[in-house]
Design a protein around this nucleic acid. Structure first.
Lengths: 206, 206, 206, 206
DNA sequence: AATGAATGAGACTTCATTCAT
DNA sequence: AATGAATGAAGTCTCATTCAT
């Protein structure tokens, strides 16, 4: 509890104690890596501690529970994927171009670049009963970003824009289940293929 | 299995075969229900046994390990979703119409009708190390069915047909993560919305 | 219980039902083989049943408990090793020659020829709490035979004859722990070596 | 092990090292006592934990598996019996006298003094499949000591010296199966009796 | 901030045995 | 004499978590 309390009590005035060598970053990194490699339930506190080189009990100096650790990783994952998408989208104007850039950024993050972002897709809130709410809340932050992107599309019906978002995000996320980095297509080309199918339509036109 | 064999060997003169009241079907049903409600790792042998009304150890009369039980449920899930999709598709001729019918059948199975089919989407092979191969093999059976459906589409490039399949199946499967049965749209209408977006394309046409 | 009761109630008048094909001999053989290969506690009822080709429960048609089965095997082991030793000894007269023949017969039985006899040495009564008494009783039958052999030796002191028996039998039995059938010496030559050491003495004589 | 290390690193100024009250010694003692009273398979983790006054799971702070615990006990048993025999033998010169002293020390250890040493004779490597190799290796350490003792005997043939060792050690070890501490002879007198038989020979001399 | 030992609950699984058929 | 399903007790081991040091 102490760690958690201290955390939430920490104001902006915090003097930044000289613990630059703290193991907290290492812990987060290891947790992110392991959660996305083995899943949340498949990863033990021992695994993480061992990866960092400390004892299991020592983790509780930084996190009150395993779920808190997950929430921290997950939150940072949402932060980072939000950042990646926003950075990719920002310089662009055209709604479709922006959406495609978002797809590329998203897919590169969850398939290749970022263990934290990967966790956001890998770990289902439904699998972590007690932290479910907090995870859903985080995920919603990210979905709101996407809602902004799809809402900007020149589609007549609101329902189409929503369906498009669900269709696209679902397809991208599910790629984690079958994508192999040594396969023929990169995350980028994959994202573009998906977008192309959606923009041009697949039916023959007269 | 022996029970099943003896059953089918029983002549027509014997109306009620011995051990016809085996609890094996109940076990499978309970396992399917619990696996898809709580996940594989979130479901204990005790949970399943209790749901059936037997002792945990008694499960091992029917399955050697928890993973074997999962494989049995999963296999039947693939059987059933294959059956549902094939039944939906069979009377139809047009490739697009067939694909849409498949989407509807798939979505209805994994969102509403069928605990077994649900498990196929809910449980990731990657989360069950020792049975991973067997699960992937089963899942591939189902994907082959879809490959047949998309390959029949009048699309110029092979790569487009494959991408379309991955896009569509991913989007449908991911729906398990956000779909609420008490929401506004049914699995059927959802499937049709997705298909419409894909067929007509989303870009404004001149 | 029924099996046990029936057994002990069986008088000599028993009409020998025409069950020549009964599986009882097979069961005993398999049990002897497995008990001496894996030990008593290391052998399960399932192992034995499977070796015979029946179901575990079916064993209880023949034996009331696993320990009863052990006692049956053990008893027959004592019978057989007694028989083997007596047969080897009978035609001989000289006490030392008789003792050596006994050693050879004993060692051949417990190292090479006879799974039943092997069990007598392999399974310690101390390891089978509930049947301990019955096993000790059986073992004593065999030791009595040896007492006869050593008592006939022309040694001055009674205590020497007893010590000799314990020394010899212990050394022979322990051979089960190190003897390898593909090694350089046969059970027979081994027995003779041991006897030679004991008869001639090892100390240099003036 | 870490505790032990820290202990030895502790300077003389600190009289009571942290964790000096570890229960590891108690665990080993209890395990030795129980393994030799009930056998390895007859002793449960619960038995040992209860004897120490901790929970079964707590044993796994010190040993990864039950077999590792056995190996630890066994190894220490070999250490101790080696030590006892070497101490008994060291001040002596005559090969026969040394051998007799070794017999006495061995028998006192495995029959009376030392639970650890007792385990070395009580538990057969063959009964503990997974740790078999490690146990055999330990036992061989001890046998090498004996080989040294018998090789020093003034016997003409090498094969005689080896046979003598096997005969003697086997007879001594097997005593665990019949020796009763309240009986007429002590381990010491027993060892001497055995040695006397072997040295002088049993056959009448002219 | 970290350690090392311990907890307590519970996980999967095994196994001798029973019993209706 | 045998089956097949079930029992009930127990077995080893895992794991998140705690806490004095």
């Amino acid at each position: 509890m102490t760690a958690a309390l201290r955390k939430s009590a920490a104001g902006p005035a915090r003097p930044k104690v000289a613990h630059a060598d703290s193991r907290l970053p290492q812990i987060l990194d290891a947790a992110a890596r392991l959660f996305c490699a083995q899943g949340y339930q498949g990863t033990t506190i021992r695994d993480i501690a061992q990866a960092v080189g400390i004892l299991p009990g020592s983790l509780y100096c930084h996190f009150a529970t395993k779920e808190d650790l997950l929430v921290a990783v997950y939150t940072r994952g949402v932060d980072q994927i939000c950042g990646a998408v926003q950075a990719a989208v920002e310089p662009l104007d055209d709604p479709w171009t922006r959406l495609e850039a978002a797809c590329v950024a998203h897919l590169e993050a969850i398939l290749r670049d970022d263990d934290y972002a990967r966790v956001v897709v890998r770990v289902r809130p439904a699998d972590v009963v007690a932290a479910n709410q907090r995870l859903v809340q985080e995920r919603d932050r990210y979905e709101a970003l996407w809602a902004g992107l799809t809402d900007a599309l020149p589609l007549p019906r609101r329902s189409d824009r929503k369906a498009l978002r669900l269709l696209l995000l679902g397809a991208l996320n599910w790629a984690q289940n079958w994508y192999r980095p040594d396969g023929p297509s990169s995350p980028r080309s994959l994202a573009r293929q998906f977008m192309a199918l959606l923009r041009q339509g697949t039916e023959a036109r007269s």
